[in-house]
Structures are given as structure tokens and as C-alpha cells.
Design a protein around this nucleic acid. Structure first.
Lengths: 328, 328
DNA sequence: CTGAAAGCGCTTACAG
DNA sequence: CTGAAAGCGCTTACAG
């Protein structure tokens, strides 16, 4: 910038004005400055700008896994809101590792993002307290923050799961299995709670062997499903705790000779084309992201004071698999 | 930092040393500095650091749409490589809009990312020349750069499509339709070229009505598929140019009374569970991302001189739909 | 082992 | 309409 000013024979401030399109420069001066910029290949350094201005016009997104189809639309929605506010998105995956989540979130804060949207992997976020105090806007999505008071946007995981299981019960099932993610993950715990509530509402005692929580890799889920289907008291229906579980359970069920009813949490692509079509409890990933990001920018605008918990409804989509009668 | 130094009764440099874990500080001094840091809630400002150091330890990723399942694994792979090199990922979607791609890429450069991985939407990237000259490492993925000489990592789109179509021909088809993305998109053009080559190799003259290129929204694709299936010379097989086209065509085919053979470019989830299973030409999205990112860091290490074009092979996965015989 | 000075590339507040 | 000075929060190069 100094070079540009020298070459154009003007002061630093004038170059700054031209670069930022501020008023108060004669066309002739502007032309000279522009010429010098082009000749020297000048590119404004936003790091310096940030240092001086305070705000960086960037927000951070810490999510679980960019490769999971559930997070694509969520993260795209956050991006669109950021874009509308002139901000860039810096993001990273925690891979469900609390340490990695913390490392990432703090690295983003050190880059002085204006705000942070976090899909938490851990359950203790006190490490963010100094950042929040220092003015970093923060919103949690999909899962609540742990041990700090913060904005959070969630799906109605409990209600959605309860409705899905109640749907199976309404179709005559009593022996219903639940396969979900690790219980320390909030969504997994809530959905299990929904399952239990629906069973209890119907007066059905739940056998331990009907519930299986753990990592959602295909091997573990496959074994869990097969055990439920072949035990002494085999289930006639399975409720899956998320999209990763669903794709594996649907595969296992396709191999069975008898028809087993199925409802999954999260919609999946092509669910309507399978035979039978896959009945799901759908959540709106884009709406989660959008709501969280809008909330973040409202924080940045100084609109809000008290952290809130916003819960978005889920939707039961019947396609066939959840309406199969029990076969025992 | 100044406050910390004052409170600890040391020089600025000593604080800097403690913060960065550099050697040459007595344990006692370090303790005093650490205490001041905690008391004051000091957080290092990486913007200032960047300004001084040159490198920002962040790379930019410009992709088409974060919500497209093809880009999730690609972008996750880029992230993992970045992480291994201690860099953060800043990204954004171009939404297939060349202006938006340019705006995003230049915004990332203004933030002084060390490098840029670009999935181009436009076909003229001369706007990046000054940045590249200024030292921003750049790699294009999935589609080549336009009008500049740069590293590019691609799938073998031509060969993959040719093999897929040849597979249909080998199963007795002659009237084969092609439905693809807009022809200005490199991958779409290459795959069409592969289709034409396979047909020509087999001595089959191609009717214009068998080819349909355009946006990949469900309405357009559905109409295109229906026209090919009901015209005077209806096709007995369809080749789909990408995953978005595949999901719609598979839906249309499920509604048909006669069996129409199908092969799609890009693998899709649950393709094996449909009836018939969906035969696809699969590309390795994660490998594309990984290869590109590794190439980027090699550029940053100063390893490379000449831009290269790296082409990754595709893989034909037969599952049933592509092996159906013609029914006419 | 420790620190004072200069400077990274901008913007802010002010004066002309 | 224009510019010189100070400063954002760090690091670098050097001296003690």
C-alpha cells in the first residue's frame, strides 16, 4: 500500500479510500491510484485490516463429519446465512472427538472469528467461557452445550423418536428393537428416551436385549440387528437411532426371510424407492443450520441477552416399512 | 500481551516466548507469565501473528455445493490433509455460479490463505494469476482450470463414461440415452464424449433425441427421461451423467412397466438395495480431495515446478440395472 | 536467560 | 478533497 501511495504520489489514506470505495476522492486521483494498484499487482491484506477493525467477518463451524450426508445441508445453510451477512465460513470436523472439538474451536477463536456454530462432540464446554466473555458469539446446534449457558438449536429428538415408535406400536408391534449411537451423544440418549416413553405409554415392558447403543459402524450395527432378530424373543420391528444405523439395518432386513417392520430417525435419499419404502422420522437439517446461524448474527447485532433453547419439530414420513404388521 | 507483560513484570518478548512454548525462559518466569495470562484472560490474536509471519496456516476450498453428497467426502479428505499439516480450512460454495466462485476465491486470497483448492464453476481463471504469482498455491479438482496453467486432479470422466456405455452395448443395447449436466461443465462434456466414443466404437449412429444435457433438477431430468422412453424410437437403456441425474432417472424407471437398463456415473448410497441394484461408474471423491490437498502442500513446500494434470481411474460396479437385456 | 526497538499492512482520528 | 501520525497485537533481529 505504501508502494502504491508512493507511485501514485498520494498519501496512504487516499489509497485506503480508493481500495475501500470510500467517498472523498477526485476521479482523477482515483484513476492514478487505480493505475498504481494494477501496475504493482497490489492485493489488500485482510489480516492487517482485521487487526485494526476488530471484526473479521468470518464465522467458525465445528461439526462432526463433513462427509455425513446429514451435515452437508446443515453446513450449506449456515454458509448461506453467513454469506448474506458478508461473512466467510471456516470449518472443521471433530470426528466425534471432544479433544479435537476443543482444539478446533479454540483455533477458530484464535483466528478471531466473530462467532462460532458448534455441533458438540464433548459434554463440557467451559473451555469456551473466556471466549464468550471476550465477545465471540456462540450457538450450539443439534446437541446442547455442556456445563455452560448458551444458545442451542435442536430437533425434537425425544418427541420424534416417541412418535416413530408409537407408530410401530399402533401397527400392532410390541417387541420393538432400538439401535442407536453412543449413549453419551445427546441425540442418541434423547431418542432412546423417546423409545422408552412410547413403550411405557403403551404399557409394554422393555427387554434389555431390545436395546443396543454404540458406535454406528456397519459391523456393530449389523451384529446388533442380527441378535435382536434371532434371539429367544425376537423383535418384530426395529427403530433406528440415526441415518448411519438406518442404512445398515435396512441392508440386514433385506436379507431376512420374514418381513420386519422398520422406522428410522433421519430421512435418507432414495428411501421411497426401496421395497418397502422406508418410513422415517425426518428432521430438517437445513432449518437447523439456518436457525442457528441467524441466531448467531442476531447475537452479533447485540439483539439478544438470554441464551435460549430452540426446538424444531420432526416429521413422520410413512412409506411402507413402518406400516408392516408383526409376523410372529 | 502488553498487559500480561506489565503484570508479570517482564518484557513483551518473554510473554511471546511463553505463549509459543519457545525455550529460554526460566520456570519461575514462565510461571509468573502464565499466571498473568490466566488472570487477564489473555488470548493470542492470530491475525497479528499472521501479519507478522507471512503464512496463515489456512487453506481455502471453493466447491460447488456442500450439500451435494459427492462433495462431502471430498471436502472431508481435504480437511484431513490440511489438519495433518496444521492448517485450517476456510470454504464456501459457488453454487455453480462463476461470479460467485471468483468472489469467493478472491475473498479467500484477501484473507491470505496459503493455498486454494478450487472446484471451478467458471471456465476462465485468469483472475487468479496475480494471486498465484504472489505465491498462493493453487490446485483445481474435479474440473480443470480455464485459461491458466495450473495443477488439476480429475477423474477419468471420458474413460469412465465410455466404459459404462460400452457395458450397456455389451449387454445388447443399441438405443441408449444419455442424460447429463450442462455442457459447459467439463465433467458433463467429457462424459458425453465418452458416451459418443463408445457408441462410435460399436458402430451405432446416435440420434439427437437420445441425448439431453441441462440443469439437473428433478423436473428437467424427469421430462428428458420420459421423452426418451416414449418417443418414436424409444431407448432401451439410459446412461446418467451424475448422481443428481441418477436419483431422478431411477425414480422414473421404477414407474415404467417395461424394464429399462441403467448405468449411472457416481455411486449413490443404497444403490445395492434397489431392485434391480444400480450399476454405476464410481469415482473416488475422497481420493480426489486427498490427492489435490497433498499436491497443494507439496507446492507450499516448494517441491514442484510444472503444473500437472493428474487423472484418477473410475470403477464400474455391476449390480443388476446395467445388465438387463433390451426389451423391445 | 531477557528485553527494547522496529515493523508487518492496514485503519482511525485528526488536522489542513 | 487529502495526508501525516499513531496504533491494532504480534514477531524478528539484535543487544545485553
Amino acid at each position: 500500500m505504501k508502494d502504491v501511495a508512493a507511485r501514485a504520489g498520494v498519501g496512504l489514506k487516499t489509497v485506503s479510500r480508493v481500495v475501500n470505495g470510500e467517498p472523498g476522492v477526485t476521479p482523477e486521483t482515483e484513476r492514478r491510484v487505480q493505475e498504481a494498484i494494477d501496475a504493482l499487482g497490489f492485493r489488500r491484506n485482510d489480516s492487517a485490516r482485521v487487526l485494526r477493525k476488530g471484526r473479521t467477518a468470518s464465522i467458525g463451524l465445528v461439526l462432526e463429519d463433513l462427509a455425513d450426508p446429514f451435515y452437508g445441508p446443515l453446513s450449506r445453510a449456515v454458509e448461506e446465512v453467513a454469506r448474506a451477512h458478508g461473512a466467510l465460513l471456516i470449518n472443521g470436523s471433530s470426528a466425534e472427538d471432544p479433544d479435537r472439538e476443543q482444539e478446533l474451536a479454540l483455533a477458530l477463536c484464535a483466528r478471531r472469528v466473530d462467532g462460532l456454530v458448534v455441533i458438540p462432540a464433548g459434554d463440557d464446554h467451559r473451555y469456551l467461557e473466556p471466549e464468550i466473555k471476550a465477545g465471540v458469539a456462540t450457538v450450539f446446534v443439534d446437541r446442547p452445550a455442556g456445563r455452560i449457558d448458551a444458545d442451542v438449536v435442536l430437533s425434537d429428538n425425544f418427541g420424534g423418536a416417541r412418535d416413530g415408535v408409537a407408530h410401530l406400536i399402533a401397527h400392532g408391534h410390541r417387541r420393538i428393537g432400538f439401535i442407536g449411537d453412543m449413549p453419551r451423544i445427546h441425540t442418541a440418549a434423547e431418542r432412546l428416551r423417546g423409545y422408552r416413553a412410547a413403550m411405557e405409554d403403551a404399557g409394554i415392558p422393555v427387554e434389555d436385549s431390545w436395546m443396543s447403543l454404540g458406535v454406528t459402524d456397519p459391523q456393530r450395527v449389523r451384529r446388533a440387528a442380527e441378535e435382536m432378530l434371532t434371539g429367544p424373543d425376537p423383535v418384530t420391528a426395529i427403530f433406528a437411532g440415526n441415518n448411519r444405523v438406518t442404512v445398515t439395518v435396512v441392508r440386514v432386513l433385506a436379507e431376512q426371510s420374514r418381513r420386519v417392520a422398520f422406522v428410522g430417525f433421519d430421512d435418507i435419499e432414495l428411501a421411497d424407492l426401496l421395497q418397502p419404502g422406508v418410513t422415517v422420522v425426518a428432521q430438517d437439517a437445513a432449518a437447523l443450520g439456518r436457525t442457528a446461524a441467524e441466531r448467531l448474527f442476531r447475537q452479533l447485532d447485540g439483539d439478544l441477552i438470554t441464551p435460549e433453547r430452540i426446538e424444531l419439530p420432526t416429521r413422520l414420513i410413512t412409506r411402507g416399512s413402518g406400516e408392516l404388521p408383526p409376523t410372529d
